[in-house]
Write a protein that binds this DNA or RNA. Structure first.
Lengths: 225, 225
DNA sequence: ATTATCTATAGATCTATAGATAATGC
DNA sequence: ATTATCTATAGATCTATAGATAATGC
């Protein structure tokens, strides 16, 4: 589905193939530390090539990052699927979420992968490039977890994506990965019975004075020594 | 604490004072839709002024955004404090969190405010400008909620900040604000007894093959039609 | 002969400044 | 006279391209 070369798929020269891999490796390293902010020039430099070569293989920066994002997304889902078929899926999923939080704490690219995937899955605006055929697999995962009673039944795939993305942001912001993972994990479970917080998509949530409170500012005017 | 003018605090001319407010109003509007990506040129234009004037009042873009971020952060904390002194704090806090999620779904600036505040509070690197004397108030809030048994006792201020920030990211990514808020809310509660997931900051979380799994990519090489 | 690669640079996008000009207020 | 404001532009930062040069493989 992701064609990178011209349609008739000419087999790529030996050196070109080597360089292509060097580019991807270099890009992936930079993606880990810089995420989408990686620079094409740096990719080229790290791969020991000129920028022109990078652009020959990937016509735009986006084409390159789509490759990186999709690969990571695929790897993550595969791991989740493996967890679900374990003898103790609840434990395995817990391990999966925790290790994700930990990884995302030091891998900007992974964090942004979740973000792009989420946004794409939620059908939001421009970045549809990152939408993949992974949706079906995610859907199966969520449903499976719900049927096992591990996850609240009103949680959509988009919400799961969004929560993973938020978890990444939370550890980036300085939260303790282990605690953050636990909060998400517990929060996703079926509401048991106690508080039994209802959550019908829209409606309440405006008990305490709605939008207005957070207006512009600066009425106190000038500085005070 | 946040001096914007030269030290001796000369009282600002009438037109200057008017323009300053126009700048802040314009900037706040743009901050809502664009967050930190707002452009100084647009701020000026929207305020009906030249860029030079904007820069006269705020020597850097950062100086301007610090103002916006701090004001929003203050407003949010004030609301949270109000919620905590209600007759039914649990309900009020719930309303607070839900309305935050809802607001953040359409206010990029508010979302980024949490992010900057979190990162700053977690003592992370460069953006210390955004660190404020709000920390004490946040600390009091969290402790208060913990003493009331509403929030798990091992949750630090940094974790709370981080979770709010993650919540914002999650709604940005397309999650249902109401559901996301609920997940966070439930997840922050004391673990009751059931699953009783321990969470000692470091340690487990690596049950399922640690870092390695998410290596570079591209062994499958060229494209497939 | 064809396919890849390189270097240098165009072009787009922003922040921030300089120097000339205009508005306030004693 | 002093303080503010304006316009035009320098400077930094990136993506992406053009045109000349080098490496493959029939």
């Amino acid at each position: 589905m992701v064609l990178t070369q011209s349609s008739p798929t000419r087999p790529l020269r030996a050196d070109a193939r080597r360089n292509r891999e060097a580019i991807i490796t270099a890009a992936d390293d930079l993606f880990r530390t810089q995420g989408m902010a990686l620079q094409m020039d740096e990719v080229a430099q790290r791969a020991g090539l000129g920028v022109g070569t990078v652009y020959r293989h990937f016509p735009t920066k986006e084409a390159l990052t789509v490759e990186l994002v999709n690969h990571r997304a695929e790897a993550v889902i595969t791991r989740a699927e493996q967890a679900m078929v374990t003898r103790a899926p609840a434990e395995a999923i817990r391990g999966f979420i925790h290790s994700m939080a930990k990884l995302m704490a030091s891998d900007v690219g992974l964090r942004e992968t979740f973000q792009l995937q989420s946004v794409a899955d939620a059908q939001i605006d421009e970045c549809a490039y990152y939408r993949q055929d992974l949706h079906a697999r995610k859907f199966a995962l969520v449903r499976q977890a719900q049927e096992a009673g591990m996850v609240r039944p009103d949680l959509a795939v988009e919400d799961f994506d969004a929560l993973m993305c938020g978890m990444g942001q939370a550890v980036l912001a300085g939260g303790n990965p282990s605690l953050i993972a636990d909060v998400i994990l517990v929060g996703m479970r079926v509401p048991s019975a106690e508080g039994a917080a209802d959550c019908t998509a829209e409606g309440q949530a405006a008990e305490l004075g709605s939008e207005s409170e957070l207006a512009p500012c600066a009425e106190d005017g000038d500085a005070s020594a």
